[in-house]
Design a protein around this nucleic acid. Structure first.
Lengths: 202, 202
DNA sequence: ATTTGAATTTTTGAATCAATTATTCAAATA
DNA sequence: TATTTGAATAATTGATTCAAAAATTCAAAT
């Protein structure tokens, strides 16, 4: 039946969600090695072997779980950016809300600390390249819009985007992964202001 | 004898230099684990046990060797900064020559690749904090001078310095430690231009 | 199409041991 | 006195083994 198979697909997507959420929670608490596929299965109420119906192997389970969380993050910011019109406002929202989101999601934060290489300065060893590339394209669109509107300097969009995204990753690392006493917030504000000034025509 | 003990001190400093250079070269080629204290001793023409007259242990040998190289780097830039007067010029020299120096010193570069954590975004886990702090203070002085001269915006010097130094470290990591195909140079130019624009009054 | 239990393969961690390497130090030297 | 050495000791590493735990497969069941 068409309808039935459609229903089943929904179920499957739902179940995948459940698995990814449960897995993320465990990975965040205990780390990759200390969480077993069986732990995840138990938490989600199925058998170990059934997990393999949804993912290729444990590594795949991990990557899909993290990707899923990162996509949710990115899409949340994307939606918020859509609520305003001007490039300046969009830039401010992207910069501000990205951090607030992480502030509000302790589990994701815990995961970043367990596995600091989730954010890397090296695209070629970025295990979540696709998600991050998406985020970067979002930023690029904002910058391009600002240039088109004539409020941003006509910079080299690709390289400036890459630069700003790297600075963003740097801030994430400094704030959540290698957080010291953290005058890091103040540094973020000052650095952002400096960049904003360098980006906007007066 | 006063004179004699003075002479001996010179000799000692010389020999330390020799040891540090030899050690750095070996560490850069073979990495920390694969180079033995004896390798260093042989290369410098003394006995293994005599190395311990100059350093506390192998770890100390490594740290002193790297610190020594980093200090030389920093002092070279410091000297070059002194050759010009204006804050803008000093900033440009600091930004440009730091990278060129590394470009010219393959052994130091090789070392960075063997031990990527020499440069960290986290001051609290920076094994070479003192040297790096010195470099940061240099940068801070330039920014302060620019503000005093009235050519830079009156920014929060401490936090902006910290920000710029972090960006500098980020570039080093991206360019030499995690270098991809490296459109990294172009990104550096664009990012630097953006920052410079955000820093300088028009 | 999804789930399961049981079987199989792979990985991990602890334990052992020999060889290598780091470190100490009393005696020698300059 | 400052520096160097050889010889002795202590600590670390790497290879190997092996049993337990965990990952993965799959034929059969729902």
């Amino acid at each position: 039946m068409r309808l039935k198979s459609f229903m089943k697909k929904m179920d499957k997507a739902d179940k995948e969600q459940k698995i990814f959420q449960a897995a993320l929670s465990l990975f965040a608490h205990f780390g990759y090695r200390k969480t077993t596929v069986e732990d995840v299965a138990v938490k989600v109420g199925m058998t170990k072997s059934n997990i393999y119906f949804y993912v290729k192997n444990k590594q795949d389970l991990y990557e899909k779980s993290v990707s899923h969380a990162l996509e949710k993050w990115r899409d949340t910011i994307a939606a918020e950016i859509e609520t305003v019109d001007s490039a300046k406002e969009k830039f401010a929202i992207a910069a501000g809300r990205s951090f607030e989101y992480l502030e509000d999601h302790g589990e994701l934060r815990a995961l970043l600390i367990k596995d600091p290489d989730i954010f890397t300065l090296s695209p070629s060893e970025d295990r979540f390249y696709e998600v991050n590339r998406g985020a970067m394209m979002m930023l690029k669109a904002v910058i391009q819009q600002g240039i088109d509107e004539g409020v941003f300097y006509p910079v080299d969009v690709d390289h400036v985007t890459e630069f700003l995204f790297s600075v963003y990753i740097m801030f994430l690392i400094k704030t959540y992964v290698k957080s010291d006493g953290s005058s890091s917030e103040r540094m973020y504000e000052e650095g952002l202001a400096l960049i904003f000034r360098g980006l906007c025509k007066t």
